[in-house]
Design a protein around this nucleic acid. Structure first.
Lengths: 207, 207
DNA sequence: TAGATTGTTAATCGATTAACAATC
DNA sequence: TAGATTGTTAATCGATTAACAATC
């Protein structure tokens, strides 16, 4: 199994290859791919090796074939669409729905949840918002295995527990608090406050 | 200079310590801090050592003093507020303003910018939105050294160049594309699409 | 062919953890 | 004091890079 850093880079490579395809570029060399993605050429070579598609010393990598090979690893088998649930429709949650809709048609947010009755039982950006009480029922019914948490820090752990009970095995957590999770659940944290504080810190040390 | 991972954890520790202070907890042990932050006890000890405040074998770390010591590293010297500029008021950009306003009073978004004339020259969440043409002028005038990029991938590189020309030395980049930056500029990328794709991939491999 | 590029191994680098004497 | 915890070094681990023969 590739490391999570490798998967991140593969995902990025595919997106960049997609842009090249639009410009009808046939072949790409590892150092070109590396420059686009901002990694070393050695890194790009190692990553491409992981997908099992071999390039040639003459032409490098065929753009379309490489993108397909990456897809074979990253996408759900059979060409289907993966169902995703989003919990929390605050400022951030409301921004996330159209963001992913636009950018990733194969990862579809099929349901959203919020504790505020004013937001529930309405359709927003084509996705229905359910009350928090129905979370487990809906997640189970739709076969959701990926959840996005965009609730305040105080309720994030509870939400995570409910998602996992209902069958979710991967969580993208925007709540600014680390989650305690059982083994067998993968979690990726995006802590924007920490990120900004880090940028401010290092910016201070620059020139 | 601490590594960027260390800084991330220090930022997280401080937030967690703040929650403990509200509950009037006086002392914390490294293994307790580690459990809260989801890291190993060894990690927490090493990180705390970096701030230069020494604990005691009897009482562990004094919560308030430790938080202050972390602040001495992370915050702008003199107790001031750091000015931040946000470029791009799409779905994500509009969510970011109130998000940071609420969570981090010492990092203040003092100006926003957008290319759409319908959005500019208005005040949103207490922050004025300027047209893109005035970016360098306003950033220079306000002494901004930290920028947040939330524009489409196609214009992100241009925006980064303009920010840097105007004196910005740290960038938080939400645009789904790696930026080419000169030395002396620190950049942190938050690529939500990559993050979600990664979560979906690993969720598939779970049980 | 000649030469740039690929696949693959060895060397390097950095971060994390384990271990333990010193401490209150 | 006794014992849990701290400060600090050595060992481990994993990821990244450098190097180079094989290839078309």
């Amino acid at each position: 199994m590739p490391s999570d850093k490798t998967i991140s880079r593969l995902s990025l490579y595919r997106r960049l290859l997609g842009q090249l395809q639009e410009q009808r570029v046939r072949h790409v060399y590892s150092h070109q791919l590396a420059a686009l993605a901002g990694v070393s050429a050695a890194q790009a070579r190692r990553d491409v090796m992981e997908v099992g598609y071999n390039g040639s010393p003459q032409h490098g990598y065929d753009v379309e074939t490489l993108a397909q090979s990456i897809g074979a690893i990253l996408d759900v088998p059979g060409g289907g669409v993966e169902a995703v649930a989003l919990v929390g429709l605050g400022n951030l949650g409301r921004a996330i729905v159209p963001y992913f809709r636009q950018r990733h048609p194969r990862l579809a947010i099929v349901a959203t949840f919020d504790a505020d009755p004013q937001k529930t039982d309405r359709v927003m950006h084509g996705t229905r918002c359910y009350p928090m009480e129905r979370l487990q029922e809906v997640v189970r019914a739709q076969g959701v295995r990926v959840g996005i948490i965009a609730v305040p820090a105080g309720s994030a752990q509870d939400v995570a527990y409910n998602l996992i009970s209902a069958g979710v095995r991967g969580i993208l957590n925007f709540a600014p608090v680390p989650l305690k999770l059982p083994p067998g659940v993968y979690c990726e944290n995006i802590d924007m406050t920490v990120a900004l504080e880090k940028v401010a810190y290092f910016a201070r040390g620059m020139k």
